[in-house]
Design a protein around this nucleic acid. Sequence first.
DNA 1: ATGACTGACGGGGTCAGA
Length: 262
Amino acid sequence: MKIASFNINGIKARLPRLLEWLDETQPDVACLQEIKTQDDGFPAADFEAIGYHAIWHGQKSFNGVAILARGQAPVEMQRGLPEMKWPGDAADEQARYLEAEVQGIRICNLYLPNGNPQPGPKFDYKLAWMQRLRERCAAHLAAEIPAVVLGDFNVIPTDQDVWSAKAMADDALMQPQSRDGYARLLNDGWTDAIATLNPRGGVWTYWDYQAGAWQRDHGFRIDHLLLSPACADRLVAAGVDKAHRGREKASDHAPVWVKLRG
DNA sequence: ATGACTGACGGGGTCAGA
């Protein structure tokens, strides 16, 4: 079973590239982030035409996530991160989280807030969002639900995951608080599929459009696939479809994927 | 280096991204 994640940076601008990628790589499940459209603008018919059923959670102009499954309908389990235990917390108004069941695996698709500039309210929102995500994920671990938590985490986990830690030192993506939030997820029992298979780092999933970042290979790793223990036992391969970042009209992210036995 | 490039909205510039 192949499960993929792709921050497409606008589904309207990216649709031909997206259909091409699905056709070439044939993931069983494809999670999308930054669809940047309201629900009624989602091109479901284009995916149905090539055999993919979809659910989606959009909003005007920004954010937005979707889950596609080949030959079957994803069964929606959660739309938006739910309200949590602490006082004053409320369900998210931004379209950043969608969860479904596909072939007995819980698929948790997320677009974590960027958090720049830091410090500031956007960074605070990012850290609070990470805390809520951790609680949602911990509940799945406690219930022993086979799960994959994947998407654009907007976190560079270590200095080995960025072309230049010095150049990015002040960025919200690699502040200690952001990294701690990610490390806490891993400590709870989630396995970072790409890191596990590439322990020396140097794997990028994002290259900025600016300053010739792609041509210079100035990238970093912020798109992640986290596996519950039962799914980690089934891990056979994981990777980045790097070549797709170099095509015409590409997203600034490359797709990432994991293959599970069975 | 207050830089760069891209998309959405809207029909021009502004905001957001990472």
